[in-house]
Design a protein around this nucleic acid. Structure first.
Lengths: 142, 142
DNA sequence: GGTTGAACCTCCAGTGGCTAGAGGATGTAT
DNA sequence: ATACATCCTCTAGCCACTGGAGGTTCAACC
């Protein structure tokens, strides 16, 4: 039987985060000691590991919820899991493309900075005038 | 003189976002009509354009605040602006590296999915067992 | 059995960067 | 004068946590 602190250590999660997962129904309500402290078993350890690893791969908590559901139905076709993973891959690819454009632009800005007065600063100039940019980066926060 | 709606249109910002920027002190309090509606001039249009463009390049609102400050002191050396831009570039590079690792792993997961029952699903299997991963992806949300 | 002290508990608030909606006032064109 | 698009303030919500206050429990040691 694991205390919440030990479960946290084993999975690289913060204690508060585990309680948060319980609160939003991603983790089950565990057993308690007489004094009211949570105690966890193997099943919960596995489930939390799954959640954490999925988070590391960038899946949203909603997506993880779906994936956990699928894991509970071993006889259903795995197409759905595949779809969720593909969706996630698409998102990662879109973000990569965007970051690449930003990288290009930022590198150019920094390279062209001559180190003079702020008045002549290329960095500020480029930020002031979008038309100086060579790449597309219309979206925010993708 | 621009209404808030027109300023929004010209800069590709939502009206609420402009009011939010005012609230947190990123945009100045503009003049008002007798009835209390906001009216904006060229200076505000320029400032908001600067903010939006910086956001598109991924700068945080705090960083943007610093950059705006620098723009108000044309005689100071532009080293600080350079530093902020370099910091931003570093962050973008870190994110890119991380996303690349995720991409690799997700592609492998999806490629190996045979389309059978959920019980044999590679996607779920990999998520269950981190040791199946070839890449490092410890951090969350970078 | 008593005493530490680390770890646990609940509850509330805050992060960033917006976004949405309620309920009402204003501005402009006809 | 009227219609109605746009404006106003205020509050609350999003995601995925994180931190802290103030109090309780557990396990080890004497």
């Amino acid at each position: 039987m694991l205390t919440i602190g030990n479960l946290a250590k084993k999975t690289g999660t913060k204690v508060q985060t585990i309680r948060y997962y319980e609160q939003i129904g991603l983790m089950p309500e565990p057993g308690r000691t007489e004094g009211g402290q949570r105690r966890y078993g193997e099943a919960e350890l596995d489930r939390l590991s799954f959640i954490r690893h999925s988070r590391q791969l960038g899946f949203s908590l909603d997506a993880i919820r779906e994936l956990l559901d699928l894991g509970d139905h071993p006889d259903r076709p795995c197409q759905e899991a595949d779809t969720i993973a593909r969706r996630q891959l698409k998102q990662v690819e879109r973000r990569m493309a965007r970051l690449e454009a930003l990288q290009t632009e930022l590198r150019r800005m920094v390279r062209e900075c001559s180190g003079g007065r702020t008045a002549d600063c290329r960095v500020l100039e480029v930020l002031r005038d979008h038309s100086e940019c060579l790449t597309d980066h219309e979206e925010i926060g993708v």
